[in-house]
Design a protein around this nucleic acid. Sequence first.
DNA 1: GCCAACGTTGGC
DNA 2: GCCAACGTTGGC
Length: 140
Amino acid sequence: MNYWLFKSEPESWSWRQQKAKGAAGQEWDGVRNYQARNFMRAMKVGDRGFFYHSNKERAVVGVVEVAAAAHPDSTDPTGTWDCVDIVAVAEMPNPVTLDMVKAEPELAGMVLAKNSRLSVQPVAEAEWRKVCRMGGLEKA
DNA sequence: GCCAACGTTGGC
DNA sequence: GCCAACGTTGGC
């Protein structure tokens, strides 16, 4: 199983909205970046991901699961872009902020800390476990 | 609100 | 194929 991070501006799509979707899942559409697209193409059903709020909040707020592998983005008429479907599976008891990530030496290698502009990113297993622990999730 | 970082576009 | 110009993202 692989781990990922999905970044969203809460103003356009928030964790609250994702949770409200429940098991119905949500197309992670609107991504227009080749690197991000390629990561989504590499995802498998059952992979886990962090749900990160960018801009004002800047924190990992929840955990999601990939519910459908990459398929054409229904909002893209050109057929260039793909997306996966995700469902909310757990909420961080304590959101892990970007500041916390940057202050933690074990997380110095996280893409989140190094490349702030990439909206879909891979997360190493050790990083995954560390962030879960910091957020108050024993396992996710 | 500003600006740095990054990706994309288009002229040559 | 290079690179300057431009647009966008997101942290500060």
